[in-house]
Amino acid sequence: MWIYEKKLQYPAWVEGCDLQIAKLLFAQYGGSDSELSAGLRYLAQRYNMPIPEAKAVLTDIGTEELAHWEIIGTLIYKIINRATPEELKAAGMGPNYVEHGRDVYPADAAGVPWTAAYIQAIEDPIANLHEDLAAEEKARTTYEHLINSTRDRGVIDTLSFLREREVVHFQRFGETLRLVQEYMEHTKCMR
């Protein structure tokens, strides 16, 4: 189960009201390589992991991704919250305003709704973990593209923290893959 804690993992800082970056931040909120995809992917993949380390890593990183999803949602909310419909329209967020108001609906930067088709869970732990390693790298690159797209120091600071988390998760998934491979080699020898 999960328990909600009334705090963010990292302070979501916004300096100004860069509506353009708010629109682009949806890439990490409801896009293919978003925090939402990451969280649900890992939590869906954990059930048949062969070793306790892997079950723990997928549960814990999956949970952390939901905290990151909340940080991205907060950044978007803080930027669009005080914008007028005209300002949103001028920033290319007119369709988003018409369909969702200022709520933070899980869609990507182009407005395409999030879909579970972005993710996979296929029982094979080696295949699953390779998808996870790729997902972390793609998310890291997405953060770099976002950081290159704004001058808001608060947003850049927050995104830099989230980018670093992708690097750490990639490292932990790599270690998990090695542990699973060692386990599989070992059980093959025992047969």
Binding site: E53, A56, V57, D60, E64, V168, R172
Partner: peptide, 9 residues
């Protein structure tokens, strides 16, 4: 959180 992930592996 960071220590937790590290200790997992």
């Amino acid at each position: 959180v960071e220590l937790n992930l590290y200790l997992d592996t």
